[in-house]
């Protein structure tokens, strides 16, 4: 696997290996953190700190490590730290109510134990499989929306369908993903239990 080489290069302190980490993962991590932190700049700082932790930890990586899953774990932890502070800090209590409420809600979502099994090495492959198993049109629209960053309007114009239909397909995709993932998580939890 690709990660094996990269891990070896990281261990020899190769700067280019670190550069690869940024090129391969920074945008994904940033995009993930922003879902929970809302403010892009704070999310960006969190990702920088996460990569620093990862870099400092490079000599302890083992060959089995899936770098993306590992980075996502760190990002999740640092996002949780941040959201916890926002939650408990008296200074921010008076801040704009809706954002504070949303951040608190995000804390609740992100602190769910399920994340421990979501961020395992195989998860990304499983996710890919599930997305590939979506009905063709549904999958295409979901990918255009999530990965290619087209707005619902742009998708509707591209495919000559109504916005409502686009929303319907995305909702449907989320529903199928949700069900299949929770099935996967249940199995995984059972496997992990002693």
């Amino acid at each position: 696997m690709k990660d094996l080489h990269l891990i070896a290069a990281l261990k020899t302190d190769k700067e280019d290996a670190l550069r690869d980490i940024f090129h391969l993962h920074f945008n994904k991590l940033h995009s993930f953190a922003t879902e929970f932190i809302i403010d892009r700049e704070i999310a960006r700082e969190i990702v920088h700190d996460s990569i620093l932790r990862f870099w400092q930890h490079r000599h302890h990586l083992n060959d089995e490590t899936n770098i993306r899953a590992y980075l996502l774990k760190i990002v999740r932890n640092l996002c949780l730290n941040y959201l916890k502070k926002v939650k408990d800090d008296p200074l921010v209590i008076k801040t704009e109510d809706e954002i504070k409420r949303e951040l608190d809600l995000n804390y609740e979502v992100l602190s769910d134990v399920n994340w421990d099994s979501v961020l395992v090495n195989e998860f990304e492959d499983v996710l890919k499989q599930i997305i590939n198993s979506l009905p063709e049109k549904c999958r295409r629209i979901f990918e255009l929306s999530r990965y290619e960053n087209l707005s619902n309007l742009e998708i509707s114009q591209n495919l000559n369908i109504s916005i409502k239909t686009v929303e319907g397909h995305i909702t449907e995709a989320l529903k199928i993903l949700r069900h299949k993932l929770s099935k996967y998580l249940t199995i995984l939890l059972c496997l992990l239990l002693p």
């Binding site: 940033h30 922003t34 879902e35 960006r44 997305i131 290619e148 949700r178």
Partner: peptide, 24 residues
């Protein structure tokens, strides 16, 4: 549940929040 799925599929590399080289 939906937010979890939403966030794990959040990968707007196409949008490029920031340029990875600059970030590096």
């Amino acid at each position: 549940e939906i937010k979890t799925v939403w966030s794990v599929t959040s990968d707007n590399e196409a949008k490029v929040f920031s340029d990875p080289e600059t970030e590096f």
